[in-house]
Design a protein around this nucleic acid. Structure first.
Lengths: 243, 243
DNA sequence: ATTTTTCAGTACGCGAGCGAACAAATGTAT
DNA sequence: ATACATTTGTTCGCTCGCGTACTGAAAAAT
């Protein structure tokens, strides 16, 4: 079903996979495989960033938490990108909280090493910048989406994004967790998810969601999914994994 | 009241002003002053980007427009930054629509020239990257804010951001226009604005808003304003113009 | 001066989603 | 097996903001 067991780890990350062999060879030594586990907090606001992460499985969420305890997801990173753009953008501390949304693995690199490599300005820099651009579009679209679209479409979109990045149709997620990401009530997610399940689009049970029909899920999603997806494919080339 | 008439134009833009003289001298020849007028569309999605803009007065909005005609602002650029980061991030076409929100002036530069200058990797690159970081935080915060905060707080925040970037307490804005930016009904803005006016915080009449009491406006704003503001000051140094 | 256009005030019914709460089901620990 | 904790189903009243529509006022055009 999945192919990444047969390949070297870095091939599962789109940025690393896109590197010319020579360049990759140089700093592969600096890449350290780590597990990322559910709910793990990778960055805390205002704390120094020690590492950046290239996920190979699983996803990381960028979260905005408010004084009253509410929190909303602003962006999502999976095997299509890198987590920690702030490092080469010139910040030593993290601006926002980042937590692991779907457990998995990542290759991590020390922040100072990344800065060095970025400065060399080769293909790697190019890739990181292009990814940054796609990431910005993702967040911008989310900003508008959060304002304009009802919960059903947003849930569908969010599940699609998860599946893209997780590289699997089996997602370990509770309604509660999804609610935090979408910035809504848990009950709201339950209702929306129930509709999708009734139509045979997803199936879930206690902390686990299976995407059964991606096609239909796309039809229920708001237009934001495709907008962002197109931008990612355009900037990072190829179609990622086509589901 | 304002000081920018006495200074060279570029001093009114925080990025340009922060450049070392040598570096600025090199490409000042490429900077062309242009007027930006209300409602003018600077970028259209998917169209090639020919110029980037360093506003000296006035502001530009990054807008997301949906199929149903709804639109929401995702970010705002004024004299604190540059408009067109996508250019050095590696995109030839604009990802999102950009329209002039408050009329004014900007120094513009050809996209290919900017790319060249960026590649030199000197202080200029540094500044642009740091600005990008701040910009990302702005959008991310907006994403969360749009989901979590009621209209009153958002309006206050938005006015503060305008004032910061416009460098003036006199803003030429209609409720209708603000509504498009905030992604709400015009009537909703009218109601929220009326409250602020009743408390003597702002005054408005037919397409014109005056900020009377910035302090109180801050108190009515959601926490998002300060969050983003701090990040800008931290990354771009100084306090911008302190109101 | 008069007409036309643009902008703001305001009201009404309505729906999405909120907060809160409780019940039921499904895992997990003992 | 039993007790416990977590996850989901579901409901209720309520609030915010929506869509719509109409009014009056201010400015611009004639």
């Amino acid at each position: 079903m999945s192919t990444h067991e047969d390949l070297p780890l870095h091939a599962s990350n789109r940025i690393l996979a896109a590197l010319p062999p020579a360049e990759y060879a140089r700093f592969s030594a600096y890449l350290e495989p780590v597990e990322i586990s559910l709910g793990e907090v990778l960055y805390r606001p205002d704390e120094p960033i020690t590492h950046v992460y290239f996920p190979t499985r699983g996803t990381v969420s960028i979260i905005c938490t408010f004084e009253d305890g509410k929190s909303v997801e602003a962006g999502m990173v999976g095997n299509e990108g890198m987590f920690g753009v702030s490092v080469f953008l010139g910040s030593v501390t993290a601006p926002l909280e980042a937590i692991v949304q779907l457990p998995g693995e990542a290759l991590r690199m020390r922040a100072d090493v990344l800065r060095e490599e970025f400065k060399r300005g080769e293909h790697f820099q190019d890739l990181l910048l292009r990814y940054t651009q796609a990431f910005i579009v993702q967040i911008a679209q989310t900003a508008a989406c959060n304002r304009a679209h009802p919960i059903d479409g947003r849930l569908a979109r969010w599940l699609l994004m998860c599946q893209d990045r997780a590289g699997s149709a089996e997602l370990q997620l509770t309604h509660e967790f999804i609610a935090v990401m979408l910035g809504t009530r848990r009950a709201g997610v339950s209702e929306a998810a129930a509709k999708l399940q009734d139509e045979g689009i997803i199936r879930y049970r206690r902390g686990h969601v299976s995407v059964l029909d991606r096609q239909k899920l796309g039809a229920h999603s708001c237009e934001c999914y495709l907008n962002v997806r197109r931008e990612f494919d355009r900037l990072l080339g190829g179609n990622g994994h086509v589901w």
